[in-house]
Amino acid sequence: MKYILASAVALGFAATQPAPAFELASADIGEGAVLAKAQVSNVFGCSGGNVSPALNWKNPPEGTRSYAVTLYDPDAPTGSGWWHWIVYDIPASATSLPSGAGDGKALPAGTVQGRNDAGMPAFMGACPPPGPAHRYVLTITALKVPKLDLPATASGAMIGFMIRANALASATITATYGQ
């Protein structure tokens, strides 16, 4: 009888354990680290590689139907930050993006790249003006919808709104870069 009760308690305990946290990792960008030259832009006077980082994620929440990835600089001197990369409608079956996927060639079928704040549907690396380092917030969001159904001309703010409106969970890596 004690064995059955102990098993029932153990099973009940296991069933109430929280799900593992949704996680984002990158071999190219570390939490709190300075961005490598590869993730620095090659426009606006910067001379980096302009290569999007490799990304891996795990433990998406139940009900995930797609993902979105964004790279945002909240410190840009614009009054509204700067969207460096916006990728959405990433299939729920995906668990990674390879380095360089920001050129659009290695994205999963059906994935959409929104226009960054320079007007390009591509990855744009860091290129802050001279002064203090800026933060670059790389976020993956698990979405409850398979597609965001946005026009190709949607702004970063509109895409960000739709991502948040359909979010189940998100995970971030925040890096810095300054000149």
Score class of each variant (00 low, 15 high):
Met1Glu: 13
Met1Tyr: 13
Lys2Met: 12
Ala6Ile: 15
Ser7Arg: 14
Val9Ser: 01
Ala10Thr: 12
Leu11Phe: 12
Gly12Ser: 10
Gly12Leu: 14
Gly12Tyr: 05
Gly12Thr: 10
Phe13Thr: 15
Ala15Phe: 11
Ala15Trp: 10
Thr16Met: 09
Gln17Ser: 04
Gln17Gly: 00
Pro18Met: 10
Ala19Met: 02
Pro20Asp: 02
Pro20Met: 06
Pro20Phe: 08
Glu23Ser: 14
Glu23Cys: 08
Leu24His: 11
Ser26Tyr: 02
Ser26Pro: 04
Ala27Asp: 15
Gly30Arg: 07
Gly30Ala: 10
Gly30Thr: 01
Glu31Phe: 01
Gly32Trp: 04
Gly32Ser: 04
Val34Ala: 13
Val34Phe: 01
Lys37Thr: 12
Gln39Pro: 03
Asn42Met: 03
Asn42Lys: 13
Asn42Ser: 15
Asn42Arg: 11
Val43Ile: 11
Val43Phe: 09
Gly48Gln: 09
Gly49Pro: 01
Asn50His: 07
Val51Gly: 00
Val51Leu: 06
Ala54Asp: 07
Leu55Ala: 10
Asn56Arg: 14
Trp57Val: 00
Trp57Thr: 01
Trp57Asp: 02
Trp57Glu: 03
Glu62Ser: 11
Thr64Phe: 01
Ser66His: 03
Ala68Ser: 14
Thr70Val: 11
Leu71Thr: 02
Tyr72Ser: 06
Asp73Gly: 02
Asp73Arg: 06
Asp75Thr: 13
Gly79Lys: 03
Gly81Ser: 03
Gly81Asp: 00
Trp82Val: 00
His84Glu: 05
Trp85Gln: 07
Val87Thr: 13
Val87Pro: 00
Tyr88Gln: 01
Asp89Thr: 00
Ile90Pro: 00
Ile90Val: 14
Pro91Asn: 07
Pro91Cys: 09
Ala94Ile: 07
Ala94Asn: 06
Thr95Asn: 14
Leu97Asn: 02
Pro98Trp: 00
Pro98Leu: 01
Pro98Val: 07
Gly100Pro: 09
Gly100Gln: 10
Gly104Met: 03
Lys105Pro: 02
Lys105Trp: 08
Leu107Asp: 04
Leu107Cys: 05
Pro108Thr: 08
Pro108Asn: 10
Ala109Arg: 12
Thr111Met: 00
Val112Pro: 01
Val112Lys: 14
Gln113Glu: 14
Asp117Gly: 05
Asp117Arg: 05
Gly119Asp: 09
Met120Glu: 15
Met120Ser: 14
Pro121Gln: 09
Ala122Glu: 06
Phe123Pro: 02
Phe123Met: 05
Pro128Gln: 08
Pro129Gly: 12
Gly131His: 05
Pro132Phe: 11
Pro132Lys: 15
Ala133Thr: 07
His134Pro: 02
His134Phe: 03
Val137Phe: 04
Leu138His: 01
Thr139Cys: 00
Ile140Leu: 08
Thr141Ser: 15
Ala142Ser: 11
Leu143Val: 08
Val145Met: 02
Val145His: 07
Pro146Thr: 11
Pro146Leu: 09
Lys147Ser: 10
Asp149Tyr: 00
Ala154Leu: 03
Gly156Trp: 05
Ala157Ile: 12
Ala157Tyr: 02
Ala157Leu: 13
Met158Gln: 15
Met158Gly: 00
Ile159Trp: 02
Ile159Lys: 03
Gly160Asn: 12
Gly160Ser: 07
Met162Gly: 04
Ile163Tyr: 08
Ala165Cys: 05
Ala167Pro: 04
Leu168Gly: 05
Leu168His: 11
Ser170Leu: 11
Ser170His: 14
Ser170Asp: 15
Thr174Pro: 07
Thr174Gly: 06
Thr176Lys: 14
Gln179Glu: 13
